[in-house]
């Protein structure tokens, strides 16, 4: 149980099937608290599917079956009886394309906390926007539509929205791939700040990004976990031939 205390999230023998397609195979991974983990690999390698099963989003896709264990806060959350609404308050998610609600900036952040009966919405909105490094840019336009913000601002708003529920784990699915370099830099900087308080798991197809900000990196290929190691070690001294081929750009 000691490892459960130190670690944010652990998966044991995790498998995902889409109908007859075995998309993710026997993944054993440990995500320590207050670190950034990067999942890399060519497209279609199962890294996004794996990420989506960590907060049970794959339950929404018809014909999907997830087996194995996901240890989080002392119990297996891949259990039939798991309360998904409570689980998803503790594990937040940010998507590839910014997807703010068609609501005001304020409402985007306040919507979920209000639903869950949380108090002091104004404070929550301000502190989350500050944590997402967006407060100064939007404090005078909280009532404006979130769709009027720039792409980078929208993505930071989506992060702020996720923080509002007080999660301990953040799942990020290629969070910068739809953004320009300046916005990307801002988000990367933000992740650096956020790891003090959160366990961050990020899918990326950008190896420089993984190298820049993550503490550990896991390399996926065809649904299998090929190698996982501290980021520096994985990029400088990979143990597997396939990993080396991928990070040196021989395929991908």
């Amino acid at each position: 149980m000691d490892s459960l205390q130190k670690n944010g999230l652990i998966t044991e023998e995790l498998n995902v099937y889409y109908g007859t397609n075995h998309a993710v195979k026997d993944i054993n991974l440990t995500f320590p608290k207050h670190t950034v983990s990067a999942l890399i690999g060519p497209s279609g390698c199962g890294k996004s599917t794996y990420l989506r099963s960590l907060n049970r989003m794959n339950d929404l896709v018809e014909g999907t079956r997830v087996t194995g264990k996901i240890w989080f806060e002392g119990h297996d959350i891949n259990d039939q009886g798991e309360d998904l609404q409570q689980l998803r308050r503790r594990i937040g998610m940010v998507w590839q394309k910014p997807n703010p609600f068609f609501k005001s900036v304020y409402e985007n952040v306040a919507f979920a906390p209000r639903y869950h009966g949380m108090k002091n919405l104004d404070e929550i909105v301000e502190s989350c926007l500050r944590k997402a490094a967006l407060w100064d840019e939007v404090k005078d336009r909280l009532k404006d539509s979130a769709l009027a913000l720039s792409g980078g601002q929208q993505q930071r708003l989506c992060i702020a929205r996720t923080l509002a529920l007080g999660p301990s784990v953040l799942l990020l699915d290629e969070p910068t791939s739809a953004l320009d370099p300046i916005s990307t830099a801002k988000i990367e900087e933000l992740m650096f700040d956020l790891k003090k308080d959160y366990t961050i798991i990020m899918v990326t197809h950008n190896m420089q990004q993984a190298a820049r900000i993550s503490d550990q990196t896991a390399f996926f290929l065809l649904g299998e976990l090929i190698e996982v190691d501290q980021t520096k070690r994985l990029f400088t001294n990979p143990k597997q031939k396939k990993t080396e081929d991928y990070i040196t750009g021989r395929f991908g």
Partner: peptide, 13 residues
Amino acid sequence: PREQKEASLAMGI
């Protein structure tokens, strides 16, 4: 857009 629904469900709504 599908992402609207996912975003909301992913926040436990």
